[in-house]
Nucleic acid binder design. Sequence first.
DNA 1: GTGAAAGCGCTAACAT
DNA 2: ATGTTAGCGCTTTCAC
Lengths: 382, 382
Amino acid sequence: MSDVPRHGGAAPQPAPRVRLVDVAREAGLSKTTVSAALNGTGRLSPEVREKARETARVMGYRPNATARQLRTGRARLIGYMVGEFADTPWSFLESPYFARLTGATAATALQRGYAVVLLPAGSLQGEWAGLPLDAVVVADPVPDDHVVDDLLAARIPVFSDRSVEGRPGAYWVDVEAGPAVCRTLDHLREQGARRPAMVMPDSTTRFHREVLAAYRGWCTAHGVAERVGYAAAPGNGPVVRAVETALSGDGEAGDGEGPDGLRPDALFLVAEASPPLVLEAARRQGYEVPGDLLLACVSEDVTAAHTEPPVTTLSLRPEEIAQAGVDMLVAVLEEGRRESAGMLVPTRLDVRASSVRRPGTARTPRTEAWTPQTEWTSLPPT
Amino acid sequence: MSDVPRHGGAAPQPAPRVRLVDVAREAGLSKTTVSAALNGTGRLSPEVREKARETARVMGYRPNATARQLRTGRARLIGYMVGEFADTPWSFLESPYFARLTGATAATALQRGYAVVLLPAGSLQGEWAGLPLDAVVVADPVPDDHVVDDLLAARIPVFSDRSVEGRPGAYWVDVEAGPAVCRTLDHLREQGARRPAMVMPDSTTRFHREVLAAYRGWCTAHGVAERVGYAAAPGNGPVVRAVETALSGDGEAGDGEGPDGLRPDALFLVAEASPPLVLEAARRQGYEVPGDLLLACVSEDVTAAHTEPPVTTLSLRPEEIAQAGVDMLVAVLEEGRRESAGMLVPTRLDVRASSVRRPGTARTPRTEAWTPQTEWTSLPPT
DNA sequence: GTGAAAGCGCTAACAT
DNA sequence: ATGTTAGCGCTTTCAC
């Protein structure tokens, strides 16, 4: 008779929500049948299935996600954190790259039926240990952080970059950093650069290590001197200062004019900084862009297209990375594979006026996608 | 005897996690006792409590959040979405203001034991209808969107801006927009501006409506002509174009030189745009800043401090808004109040060189916080 | 093809 | 002060 719960916990909702059993009673069916009808499982006659669905719709039935979770063991919740920025665990959203990566991850995940919860950089010791996370995405982990280990030890699948390759329960998506660097440097060289400098953060991220290695390899292969400047910290201030130092020729050697006594004639900036600010910095150092200095930045900052001249950017394509990662995540979670797997996503160079000295040499006058060869390893795009 | 589940659903985890009952058996206690010990509830002797805690720790027990949720009826999960940007539901993270608001919301929530899940702008019809959300934060809703109604109809508490004031189940935090606008305009006037123009998005957000009203009121009170430019869309392109139009004096009236035939001598920009780009636009229109044009922007963009001259900004203080909102949310959820409530958060004007024509008039030469009077309504900070 | 019932792991009412 | 037990809402096995 009485439907009010007498024993269980307090029902905080004043209006008791309609439950599966309510639908079943209303439709004159059993819980089982209604459940099967709604989930598309079981063997039911079309009429019954329709009847159940209709009743549920009319009654405004919405399944209790928590109960379903408890039963199925999965919460359809994935954690998301960025390993870099360990000292300012939430500032990653202020980077255009991570903002887009985060948004795209959440968007793709939701399409696949998973929700993304935002987590701070830093170790598992945190307040979120109790969340029922099916998996955690760790974007750009730093090697000396042990989040990944903690997560794996807690048997939570981890999705990260290639640095986790081979570890059971860990999966990866990474960017084709090496080829991208080489192609960008090739482009600068095509446009006449002979002394390309690179500025990057003093970071231990796999991406940055790869970039540095590729730059060095390219310099060796082309017989040019290495000119690398390091930004002491992320953020516009430090990066712009590093750019100024690099452009003044006052590199780490401190010899005043670069390795060979000459100032660089191209700059490849591999750190998020505001393109207009970078342009200004170059000008303060007495350069005209692209006249005296060709400029290309690894950046997702949309202002790059709005400066004068517009700035050439190498996009890491956060949306594609996110999509590939989430697709893999869903495959893993839903098909229950355990061995590590991963894939590579290509980059895109958007050539703009800041790196075009000889008109007509660039693929297009202003802005055009140029995609290096794609390299898929395991898990082709579904 | 047998601990393996025989009846229930498949246990996807290969290693069965240690449950409450396991701890209880190991410690020679009952589930109840261990539960009470761990949760700090009930009346237990200190020794027993300690024993239970120690055993749990040793066994690496971590409570199953889902089971707890099912029992308690609350998931400790809050949704987060921003109402603006309905056409590009995920781009809000690329705005410095919303990036910081989002990060701060997630950070504060986590500290209070709640996780934040990212939701797209748009109506409840979406894929996330099934999430066990205790509440949803709707940042800057647009009036013609019915998310708030849908949420309230589904009896999910909503935390938003003042536009939801008075609706049962809805709570608000808002920014002191009016006073902030007046003080900024006062500051520009103090610095010598006589023809301040304002550029804002063509948005129906409560904030923007309030800003417009305040600007108009201020103009009337000071007997100056209104010069308002509207950006057709968010983003640097449209906003910069709107700035150019406003500065050329070519307002909506299309009279070539502004309402009184004169170009503006100050610009108050109430739209996120890259400060360096805005400066450039002003220069393209033949202005020198701050010589011919005083500039102040509502912005959280950190590049404002790095331009030459640095740009004066009115900060909406997203961190404070987030914290106030989450504190209120926790109070509501945990004390179960139903009547609507809200509070106001003050803004902060960071005066920098772009709006200082007469040296010494500004509170400090470069960058100093100047906080207008605070106005608290209900719910004082806890 | 349909329904009864077990039980996911936990918390809280009640009994001791 | 501690233990026994019901039951949160759902999915799934198994018997009919």
